[in-house]
C-alpha cells in the first residue's frame, strides 16, 4: 500500500531507486539490498570523523527509497573515495559506488556541481587533461616548467574537435 517518512512526509521514490540500482548493476554488479546495517563501512570511513559521512545510513536510506533526500544532500560530496567500505563490506555492498552514482544523479538533475569539478571538466573538454602544464616552485624558490626539466612534450588528444564530440555524446547519455 504505502510507506511514508513521517518527518518529511516523503514517500519512497521507487523509480529513482530503480535507476540507481540499474546504474550500479551495470558498472559494479552491486546490489545494495543485501546490506544488513553492520556499519563496518562507517566504522572505517575516512570521511566520517571529519565530515560526518555515514555510508551505512546512505545505504539504509537508499534501501528505503528516499533518493531525493540523498541526491539533494551535501554529505554525498564528502566521500574521500578511499574504497575501504567497498573493500571490507561483508555483504559485498559498495557504499563508495552508491555515492558516485548519487553524485552523478545529482549532476544529471541539474544540481550545482560543487568545487572545482566544473573547471576540471572544462579543461578536459578543451585540451583532454584536467589542467594544463603548471609552473612549479623548487626548494630554492626557482620556478620551472616541464620543458625546462628536459621532459618530452605532453601527451594529449591530437584532434580536439573529434575528442570533444565524443565527450559531448557521453554527456547526453545515461549510464
Amino acid at each position: 500500500m504505502s510507506i511514508i517518512d513521517l518527518t518529511s512526509m516523503g514517500e519512497p521514490q521507487s523509480d529513482l531507486r530503480k535507476e540507481l540500482n540499474d546504474r550500479l548493476t551495470k558498472l559494479q554488479d552491486e546490489i545494495s539490498d543485501y546490506c544488513f546495517q553492520c556499519a563496518k563501512c562507517t566504522s572505517g570511513c575516512e570521511s566520517h570523523k571529519l565530515l560526518e559521512l555515514e555510508p551505512h545510513k546512505i545505504v539504509a536510506l537508499l534501501k528505503r527509497g528516499l533518493l531525493n533526500e540523498l541526491v539533494n544532500s551535501d554529505v554525498i560530496w564528502t566521500c574521500m573515495t578511499c574504497l575501504k567500505c567497498r573493500e571490507r563490506c561483508p555483504q559485498r555492498v559498495a557504499p563508495v559506488e552508491i555515492l558516485f552514482a548519487l553524485k552523478n544523479m545529482a549532476v544529471a538533475s541539474g544540481k550545482q556541481i560543487p568545487g572545482k569539478y566544473t573547471g576540471m571538466l572544462q579543461s578536459i573538454l578543451s585540451m583532454g587533461l584536467i589542467q594544463d602544464i603548471q609552473q612549479t616552485t623548487t626548494r630554492t624558490n626557482k620556478t620551472l616548467k616541464r620543458d625546462e626539466l628536459g621532459l618530452p612534450p605532453l601527451s594529449k588528444p591530437i584532434d580536439v574537435v573529434k575528442f570533444q564530440a565524443g565527450i559531448m555524446k557521453i554527456a547526453m547519455e545515461k549510464v
Binding site: 552523478n104 549532476v107 576540471m120 601527451s155 594529449k156 545515461k174
Partner: peptide
Amino acid sequence: GFSCCGEPMKSVNQL
C-alpha cells in the same frame, strides 16, 4: 594522444 583517465570525473559522470 592520451587524455585524462577519467577518474577525477567519476563523481560527475561515471560513463
